[in-house]
Simulated scan of single mutants.
Amino acid sequence: MLTLLLLAAAASSDPLLCAPGSGPHIVAHRARRDVDRPENSLAEMKATVTAAPYMLEIDLSETRDGVIRLLHDDDLDRTTNGHGPLAAITSNEAAKLRLKDSAEPPPRFDTAARWAARNPGATLMLDIKKVPPARIAPIADRVGMTGRVLLLTFDRKTTEAAIAADPIWRISALVRSSEELRSYQALFGDRPFVAYLPTFSPTALFAEARAAGVTILTDAMSGGMASPDKLAASDAGAYRRYLADRPADLLVTDHATRLPACVR
């Protein structure tokens, strides 16, 4: 009972979550206000947080000389005026590129983290599929962002590496079944973790995670024909109907600013 009370008290002041009863914290996918805005752009990150205190989801990749920059794809072609893999060029070469529809190069992660640290309302969700957690931890710690980042991990090996890299930061693990939920509960022990339940996971899995007191992350991405994001432009109640039997603490969307930062 004492553990539950302590967890409840912590949740009430958790910078990653909305206040109890306020609904899930909205996460801007690739840190953009809407799907037609530049992705993984520092200028767009600033504009998104100015609109409301949305959490910013960003993708991290490394240059050939090991500098971490914001980029989703392996290649530069889709989002920049460059060509080929980011991993094939140096950071100085990357600095000369420009994001499409933007005058900036792919931002350095340390620059974005320092900006976020100076803005108390800024929180970051880090997609780290291409960068080892141990490379990210010192940067987050150095700028004072450790308590305001959530790491996305998609396999047990990366989750274990993230746990070992830092004793404080919050970690999300991909959960697709009751068995995986229980397995990750055992792995994390007393350390809180976030269960990422992908779009349209069984409602029973949401209920099980909620009953276990686990923080829940889900998404409503625009790829699915029936997803809330697909309906958002014409039906503002789509998100609320989606969440009605899917209790969640964080919701990732391609259309962040169509919603308040905390959906009620």
Rank of each mutant, 00 (worst) to 15 (best):
D77M: 10
D77I: 07
D77Q: 12
D77T: 13
R78A: 07
R78G: 01
N81F: 05
G82A: 02
G84P: 15
P85S: 09
L86K: 00
L86P: 00
L86E: 00
L86I: 00
A87N: 02
A87L: 03
A88N: 05
T90W: 02
S91T: 11
S91G: 12
N92E: 13
N92R: 14
K96H: 14
L97Y: 08
L97G: 03
L97H: 01
L97A: 06
R98S: 12
L99M: 04
P105V: 11
P105H: 10
P105R: 11
P106D: 02
P107F: 09
F109K: 05
D110C: 07
R114E: 14
A117E: 13
R118F: 15
N119L: 09
P120R: 12
G121R: 08
A122S: 13
T123K: 06
T123H: 12
D127V: 03
K129S: 11
K129T: 11
K130T: 01
K130D: 05
V131A: 11
P132R: 09
P132T: 14
P133A: 04
R135E: 11
R135A: 15
R135C: 14
I136G: 02
A137I: 02
A137P: 00
A137M: 06
A137L: 05
P138V: 07
P138M: 09
I139A: 03
I139S: 01
R142V: 06
V143A: 09
V143I: 01
G144E: 07
M145G: 09
R148G: 01
V149D: 04
L150N: 00
L150A: 04
T153S: 11
F154S: 04
D155V: 08
R156C: 09
K157V: 08
T158W: 04
T158Q: 04
T158P: 01
A162P: 10
I163D: 09
A164E: 10
A165R: 08
D166L: 03
D166C: 06
P167W: 10
W169A: 01
R170V: 00
R170G: 03
I171G: 03
S172Q: 05
A173E: 03
V175P: 00
V175F: 02
R176T: 14
R176S: 10
S177Q: 08
S177K: 14
S178E: 11
S178R: 13
S178A: 15
E180K: 10
E180Y: 10
E180S: 08
L181H: 15
R182P: 10
S183G: 15
Q185G: 09
Q185E: 13
A186R: 15
A186V: 09
L187T: 15
F188R: 09
F188N: 12
G189T: 05
P192G: 08
F193T: 10
V194M: 07
V194W: 02
V194G: 05
Y196F: 10
L197N: 04
L197G: 01
L197T: 01
L197Y: 08
T199M: 12
S201F: 04
P202R: 13
